Simulated scan of single mutants.
Amino acid sequence: MNNDQIQFSFELFPPRTPAGAEKLPAVVSALAAARPAFFSVTYGAGGSEQQGTYETVMQVVESTGIEAAPHLTCVGSSRSGIAATLQRYRDGGIRRIVALRGDLPATATSTQAPGEFRYANELVSFIRELHGDHFSLEVAAYPEMHPQATGPDVDFDNFRRKVDAGANGAVTQYFYNADAYFDFVDRCQQAQIAVPVVPGIMPITNHAQLTRFSAACGAEIPRWIRLRLERYQDDREALLDFGLDVVTRLCRTLLENDAPGLHFYSLNQSEPTLRLWRNLDLPLPIAAP
């Protein structure tokens, strides 16, 4: 494992409350001490956080000098609206974008996004059409299958279309079964898909929250993990220690088997990610914030 060639990144979301906005600069500063390759910043369904995404992206860049990648989604989008957003980011010096379909509204009756773009591959193609190679484009990958896909082959074909449209790399949904990731990478190799697929890593800090997130996104919590979390749900310290051990071993397994990096879902908290970082003995050790 050559740490010099491994890419680490952290995901943030635009703060939704005054308290969250007040807390965010300290979180960004603490995470920036690890010198990630980039931060990504999420984007609300239907563009509900578009302005917040822009403001958070620019705040990260201006305060840290580290690259920030806004999420850009199809849901509820128009070609003119996406074009204007892309130009705004380009004018702001942004060079990386995470291109996604986005979460469908609760009233959606199909897997197509409402708006002028239905799927992420169409968004990737449009970005390439307007801006050529200016932006490095990351897309989503689902080792355990997208929850709305009709089958694993259909889901993999959707991923292939995003790569064929011009994606430079992919970040996965989080998972706790390393074999799911390795199987996905093997399928990419067999299909001659050469873009790096970076595992998404979710620290385990809260049983109820993780259960809710996983039900929504289709990430499996293995039974042995779920039962232990249920046992520890009233003992926060034991749950945090168990979660740290589980995710540390997952990360080590991934890196020792040539994963190109790790993308940490920080949930706008620095300490769970930094605790993992220190436990993994990654480059540039960080003092506790």
Score class of each variant (00 low, 15 high):
N3P: 14
E11I: 13
P14S: 05
T17F: 08
G20S: 07
G20Q: 09
A37M: 12
T53W: 08
E55K: 14
T56V: 13
V57M: 07
V57R: 06
V60R: 06
T64C: 11
L72R: 09
T73K: 11
S77K: 13
S77V: 15
A84L: 11
D91H: 10
D91Q: 13
G92R: 04
G93R: 05
I94F: 01
R96P: 09
V98I: 14
L100I: 15
T111K: 05
A113K: 11
G115F: 03
N121D: 14
E129D: 15
D133G: 09
V139Y: 00
A140Y: 08
Q148A: 07
Q148P: 00
G151W: 12
P152W: 00
D153S: 10
D157W: 00
F159N: 06
D164V: 14
D164I: 13
G169Y: 01
N177I: 05
A178R: 03
A180K: 07
C188S: 06
C188V: 10
C188M: 10
T205Q: 01
T205S: 02
N206Q: 09
A208C: 03
T211S: 11
S214R: 07
L229H: 04
E230Y: 07
R231P: 04
Q233W: 03
D234I: 04
A238S: 11
A238G: 05
V247F: 04
V247D: 02
L250W: 02
T253Y: 01
A259K: 06
H263G: 05
F264K: 01
N268C: 04
N268W: 02
E271H: 12
D281H: 13
D281L: 07
L284D: 09
P285C: 03
I286S: 06
A287E: 14
